[in-house]
């Protein structure tokens, strides 16, 4: 390659890196001095940073830094700031009549957003993230229009506050169906099962069901009602509808009558604030089944 005079001069002044690719060589030109200053500035910055912020890892944690900053502390501050920011609307929520929350768009929006968070943290384990419960396994679906203990917002609030069959809470909702396997004979339970199938509109043996109707009137009607419509005062389920907490097939109904089944829900008044309970009450009420 015939280098020009200028190229030769430059190669003479700076030298080349010694690499050569297809006849192309690279001058070893000096770097710009401002680049060096920038580099020094970053070193100075790093030293200041190490002094001010947590930086050097030690056996138990790291050097704290002069500013005492930590991401955990920052989170705590931000959480506190959020609580402070919500303090006013929380007090409005607690002061409002439960039935009037939905009429106030701001309160309703706040309650629904907060309630969704509370629900996913504390309720979703049993009732599911979508609040559909666990079908036929005793975790009630909160989306439908069937409520054991009442579906208006005050009833929901009462249930969440005091729980169900939680004996340590004197105001808890309480009822218990006896296990009829210890009370009735096997054929009698078959007959009762046929009657329940009949009043819920399913296929059944008409003769057995007629016997079962008499047994029902004696043993079951006091809680489930003469027509099987249930009784919310006692949490007795409606036996005539399409919704079954423990399944509606013949075997499942038979098993429920024989052994009795019930669930337990803890009270939340000691774990959640009143504002949180009201939020999640409004949320559950607004899921589509609220009355």
């Amino acid at each position: 390659m015939a280098d020009t005079k200028k190229e030769q001069d430059k190669a003479e002044e700076y030298g080349t890196t010694g690499h050569e690719w297809d006849g192309i060589r690279e001058y070893d030109t000096p770097m710009p001095r401002w680049w060096l200053w920038t580099f020094y500035a970053t070193i100075v910055w790093a030293v200041i940073y190490v002094i001010l912020f947590p930086a050097i890892p030690l056996v138990n944690g790291a050097t704290p830094g002069l500013l005492g900053f930590s991401t955990r502390g920052q989170l705590a501050e931000e959480m506190q700031a959020a609580r402070d920011a919500n303090a006013e609307i929380d007090s409005q929520l607690v002061a409002a009549e439960l039935t009037e929350i939905s009429a106030d768009p701001e309160l309703q929006r706040y309650a629904m957003a907060g309630g969704a968070a509370v629900f996913k943290t504390y309720c979703a384990q049993c009732h599911g993230a979508g609040a559909a419960g666990v079908q036929a396994a005793g975790y009630p679906n909160l989306l439908d229009d069937d409520w054991l203990w009442g579906g208006d917002i005050e009833a929901i609030h009462q249930t969440i506050t005091h729980g169900i069959r939680w004996e340590a809470d004197p105001d808890t909702r309480f009822s218990q169906m006896p296990a009829f396997g210890e009370i009735l004979e096997g054929e009698e339970i078959d007959a009762l099962t046929a009657h329940v199938l009949a009043i819920s509109g399913q296929d059944h043996d008409a003769g057995l069901a007629a016997t079962g109707a008499e047994l029902y009137a004696e043993n079951c009607a006091s809680c489930h009602g003469d027509a099987g419509m249930g009784d919310r005062e006692q949490g007795a389920p409606n036996l005539t509808d399409a919704i079954w907490l423990y399944g509606g097939s013949e075997e499942e109904i038979h098993e429920t009558i024989t052994y009795s089944r019930y669930g337990i829900m803890p009270p939340w008044q000691d774990r959640l604030t009143e504002a949180q309970i009201r939020q999640v009450s409004a949320y559950v009420h607004g899921l589509g089944g609220g009355e």
Binding site: G128, A132, L143, D144, D145, D241
Partner: peptide, 18 residues
């Protein structure tokens, strides 16, 4: 469409989507 759950059975047997 709300997918959790896909649908809800109501007490009269009708089926609702959200």
């Amino acid at each position: 469409p709300v997918r959790n759950p896909l649908n809800v059975t109501l007490s009269d047997g009708s089926v609702r989507n959200t």
